[in-house]
Write a protein that binds this DNA or RNA. Structure first.
Lengths: 337, 337
DNA sequence: ATGAAAGCGCTAACAT
DNA sequence: ATGTTAGCGCTTTCAT
C-alpha cells in the first residue's frame, strides 16, 4: 500500500540513504544517480512519511497558528491573516496547525512539548499577556502579532498603529479640519489592554495636539445602535466637528448612516478616515479614505521571520509595518468657515 | 532536555510498554502501577513525542480542514466553522491542520499520502467538484460540507438549504404575503455550481408555487450598489411585492437601507426573511427574521462523523441539518389589501 | 560519491 | 498484570 524509501532505493538500485540525500540535497549526488532516484520516485509515487521524517529529522515542518476568538476582533482580518500564513508557510514547505486561544497556555505548551510543531505564531497579543513567559521558555521559536509592554526576548510584528492614527489625523488636518474625533474599538478592547487599540489612540491624540486640533476619543460597541448613539453624542459635544477617524470596522457603515440621518453629508459636512482592511473601506456605500490593515502582509512577514529563526538566524525583535493611506470618497477639504 | 517514555518507565520502576499502556488504557493496569506511572509522568513533565507516536501507532491524531477562499462565501461563516472544528477535534484529542483550497487536489493528496493527517474535512463542495474522485480514492476517511451531484461513497453534511428556502417562503405566506422575491448569492456562485445556493432557489420556488405565490429570483453581487439596483428592479418588476427572502449576508443591511430609501418600511410595507448566521440577523439595524446558518453545529457534526469513521464505524452518507427559523422585527402580517 | 547501520521515541505483538 | 522486543520509515553519522 505505502511506498517507502527502501522501495525507491531498490527500484533505483541505490541505498536508502542515497535516496534520502538525493531528495534533500544535503550531500552531492552524481547526475546519473539523481536521475535514477527521481525516476523511481515518480514511477512509484513515493511520498516520504511525515512522522517518520519528523522523528528522524527532529523537525515536523509544521507551524502553529493561534487565533483569537474574542469580541471586538474583526473576523475577516483574522481569516485573511490565517490564509496568508498558510500560503506563506507552504512556500517554505511547511504546514499550519490551527489553535484557538481557548486552549490557552496549555495548548501552546502541548504542541511545543510534543514536538507537533516546530514554531509558533501567536495573534492578538495583549499588553500584559499571560502567555509571554511561556513563549520565552519554550524551546521553539515564536513570532507574536502585536506588541506587549515587555517585548524583550520576543519577536513581534505589527502595523505601526500609532503612525496609522497619526496619519489619519494628519490627513484631516491637511484638509483644513480643526475639530476631530476618534471612534474607537469597543470599550472591552481597551480595558483588557489590547496594545494596538491604545496605540491608535496615542497616535490620534498626539497628532491632533501637534496639529493644534480639538479632539476627543470615544470607544464604540460593534452595533448599529451604539454607532448611532456615538454619532449623536459627538455632535452634541463637538458641534464644530468636521473630521472623524474610525478604528472599528463593524460600525463604519452604520456610523456614516447615522451622520447622514443627522443631517451631515459625507464628505460635504464631515470627512471620515478609517483604519481597516482596504476591501472594507472600498466596499462601503461611501468608500472611505483609509489606512490599510495589511493582514496578508503581516502573515507573510510573520512566517518569514519564523523560518529565519528556525534556521538559527538572528531577526529583529520588533517589526513595525509602515501604514499607508489611500484616498477615497469620504474626505474633502473643510468648507471655508 | 526531552523526557521520554524510558525515563518515565525507569522513574516508575516499570517497563516502557507498561507506561504506554497505562497512558493509553489499552490494557488493564493495576491500581498501584497506574499511580506510580502517573506520578512519574507528572514529576518529569512527560509529553509523548507526537511524531514517534504517530509513526509507531500509524495515527497522527491530526485532521485536515480545507477552507474555501472564493468570493461569495461569507467569511464569518467559514471562520466560525473552522473554530468549531478545532474545538470539536480537541475533544477527541485531535488537532487540525489548515489547508486552503488554493492548494487544490495536490494539497489533499499530499497530506493524505504523507500520513500527515488521519482524515479530512472539505468545505464548500461544488456540485461537480474535481476533488471527488480523489477523495474517494484516498486511503483516509473524509467528510464533505455540502452536497455534490454524485455523492455516492462520500459522507456529506450540510444544512438542508432546500428546506431553509421553503421555510422562509412559508413564513411569508403564513403572514399573508402573496408576491415574493428571492435575493440570492452573487451570480458567479450559481454559475460555478455551488449546491447550497441552488438548493435555496429550488426550495424557494417550490414553496412559492405550492403556496400559490407570485415569485422571482435575483442573484445579487455582494456590494451596496448592487443591492440598491436589485431593490429598484424588484419594485419595478413586482410592484405588488411585500415579501423578500435574502440569501446573501453581505447585502442584507444595504438592501434594507435601499428599500427604506425607496419609501418602503420594513416590516410595515415589506417583510424580510433571510438565511444567514443568527449573529448577523440579530445585529442588523432592523433585526431580521432568519433561518440560522449553523456553522458551529456543522463543524461539530463533521468532526463527530469523521471520528466515527476513523474507528471503523459506518456512518450515514448524508446528514441534513433541519433548518430553524427565528422571528425577529423584519416580518409582519401583510396589510389588508 | 555512495553504503551500512544506528538510532529517533513510541506502540503493539508476543511473551510470561 | 507486566516485561521483552521488534519494528514504524526516515535521517544521519560513520565508513569506504
Amino acid at each position: 500500500m505505502m511506498v517507502k524509501i527502501t522501495d525507491v532505493a531498490r527500484n533505483a538500485g541505490v541505498s536508502p540513504s542515497t535516496v534520502s540525500y538525493a531528495l534533500s540535497g544535503k550531500r552531492p549526488i552524481s547526475e546519473e544517480t539523481r536521475r535514477r532516484v527521481e525516476a523511481a520516485v515518480r514511477e512509484l509515487g513515493y511520498r516520504p512519511h511525515a512522522s517518520a521524517r519528523a522523528l528522524a529529522g527532529s523537525r515536523s515542518n509544521v507551524l502553529a497558528l493561534v487565533i483569537p476568538l474574542r469580541t471586538g476582533i474583526h473576523v475577516p482580518v483574522v481569516t485573511q491573516f490565517a490564509v496568508s500564513v498558510v500560503t506563506a508557510a507552504r512556500r517554505y514547505d511547511h504546514d499550519v496547525l490551527l489553535l484557538t486561544q481557548e486552549e490557552g497556555e496549555d495548548g501552546l505548551r502541548r504542541v511545543a512539548d510534543t514536538a507537533l510543531v516546530d514554531a509558533l505564531i501567536v495573534m492578538d497579543v495583549q499588553l500584559h499577556d499571560p502567555r509571554l513567559p511561556l513563549l520565552r521558555s519554550l524551546d521553539r521559536p515564536s513570532v507574536l502579532i502585536g506588541f506587549p509592554r515587555e517585548a524583550a526576548g520576543l519577536t513581534c510584528v505589527d502595523l505601526d498603529f500609532r503612525a496609522a492614527g497619526e496619519l489619519c489625523v494628519e490627513r484631516l488636518a491637511g484638509l483644513g479640519h480643526r475639530v476631530v474625533a476618534l471612534v474607537g474599538s469597543p470599550p472591552e478592547v481597551y480595558v483588557r489592554g489590547t496594545a494596538f487599540a491604545q496605540r491608535v489612540v496615542q497616535g490620534f491624540t498626539a497628532a491632533a495636539d501637534r496639529c493644534g486640533l480639538a479632539s476627543r476619543v470615544h470607544p464604540c460597541e460593534a452595533t448599529p445602535a451604539a454607532a448611532r448613539r456615538v454619532a449623536e453624542r459627538l455632535l452634541r459635544e463637538q458641534p464644530a466637528l468636521t473630521g472623524v477617524v474610525v478604528h472599528n470596522e463593524a460600525v463604519l457603515e452604520p456610523l456614516i448612516d447615522a451622520f447622514e440621518q443627522l443631517g451631515l453629508r459625507v464628505p460635504g459636512d464631515l470627512s471620515i478616515t478609517a483604519i481597516c482592511p482596504d476591501e472594507t473601506a472600498a466596499a462601503l456605500r461611501v468608500p472611505v479614505t483609509s489606512v490599510a490593515l495589511p493582514s496578508a502582509e503581516l502573515g507573510e512577514r510573520a512566517v518569514d521571520l519564523l523560518l529565519r529563526k528556525l534556521t538559527g538566524a538572528e531577526v529583529p525583535e520588533a517589526t513595525l509595518l509602515t501604514p499607508h493611506l489611500t484616498n477615497r470618497a469620504s474626505t474633502a477639504p473643510r468648507d471655508a468657515p
